[in-house]
Design a protein around this nucleic acid. Structure first.
Length: 309
DNA sequence: TAGGCCATCTGGTCCT
DNA sequence: AGGACCAGATGGCCTA
């Protein structure tokens, strides 16, 4: 029997065995009921999954790892209740379990208990009519749910692609911010904050190039060396082969034994001032120190400095 | 184990 | 109506 004959109400005498197993009424569920299972000797299934049916008609999946998509409303039927095969042939929806899990079962409008109690009191022909009406309503509702699911999946896909696009933009930004090789991958928020700082740094570089008179002042250190100091910046100095670092807050550090200053930065421009009388030259640079962001939040991520030779 | 970071899903809102 | 955008919720992974 196909759906066309079913909708025309041309019920055929039932040929299955009502007594061989439970028959699950359908109509109030979205879809997924296979009438060939109903009233037959085949083992009961729900959405293609083998289920165990208890005496009270409740179903449990045989595989305990599987959850039924719905708590199925059921009605045990036997040869005393109706002698006609249910006149419909539903095909189970071909949807993954994830989709079914999205259904709001608690919000369902249908009242299984009430419907079933009235259903049982109707004559057989009336029940068949009720079945057909319920199937049509369920089909309509099922179609609507299918459309909603399709739209939801499409929206999810668009959202994934949108987020991928944003992440690609973040990657592009990361590659344009000078960082040190040993630094781990920048998080999104750090990428944004560093980008802001780096842009500010570039703006200051441009500003200083347009204002050559803006020079750092020098301060003596406790070991007799001179550190060129920019009040808002970090400075460093080389003298007699030794390097010293002076931070804007007055802290200092000496170069490591290998001669490397414990600072690595990104330098865009150098200004050189030669003093012929003192046989000295001073190099002044503005540095971008990306690791300062992670190491010490109080140290500015950009600075300028100078050293003399 | 707690916290940070991230991807994904989802429903709401706004715009075309 | 459909798509873009956004924010909240959630769960997984990693690290200190």
């Amino acid at each position: 029997m196909n759906a066309a004959t079913a909708s025309a109400g041309q019920a055929e005498p039932m040929t299955g065995n009502f007594n061989s197993g439970p028959c699950f009424e359908f109509g109030m569920y979205e879809n997924g009921f296979d009438p060939s299972i109903c009233c037959s000797s085949r083992p009961p299934e729900w959405f293609g999954m083998p289920v165990d049916v208890s005496a009270d008609g409740s179903m449990m999946p045989i595989n305990s790892d599987v959850e039924l998509p719905f708590v199925p409303f059921h009605a045990g039927m036997n040869s005393q209740t109706c002698l006609h095969e249910l006149p419909f042939a539903q095909q189970p929806l071909q949807m993954p379990m994830d989709d079914y899990q999205s259904f709001d079962v608690a919000g369902a409008e249908f009242d299984p208990q009430g419907a079933m109690s009235s259903f049982k009191t109707e004559p057989c022909e009336k029940r068949e009519s009720i079945c057909v009406q319920q199937i049509r309503r369920a089909k309509k509702k099922s179609s609507k749910v299918e459309v909603q699911l399709r739209q939801r999946h499409a929206a999810n896909l668009r959202e994934r692609r949108r987020m991928q696009s944003i992440n690609e933009a973040f990657d592009g930004l990361r590659h344009r911010i000078p960082t040190l090789p040993y630094e781990k991958r920048l998080s999104k928020v750090d990428t944004l904050k560093l980008a802001i700082g780096y842009i500010r740094f570039l703006q200051e570089v441009l500003t200083q190039e347009n204002s050559p008179n803006l020079s750092p002042h020098s301060v003596p250190t406790n070991n007799g060396h001179t550190v060129m100091f920019n009040p808002t910046a970090t400075t460093f100095q080389e003298s007699n082969g030794n390097f010293f670092m002076g931070y804007h807050d007055g802290r200092q550090c000496e170069a490591q034994s290998n001669g490397m200053i414990p600072l690595a930065g990104h330098c865009l421009t150098w200004n050189r001032e030669d003093s012929e009388s003192q046989h000295k030259s001073t190099l002044t640079a503005k540095l971008w120190i990306p690791q300062a962001f992670h190491a010490d939040k109080n140290v500015p991520s950009e600075c300028s400095g100078a050293f003399t030779t």
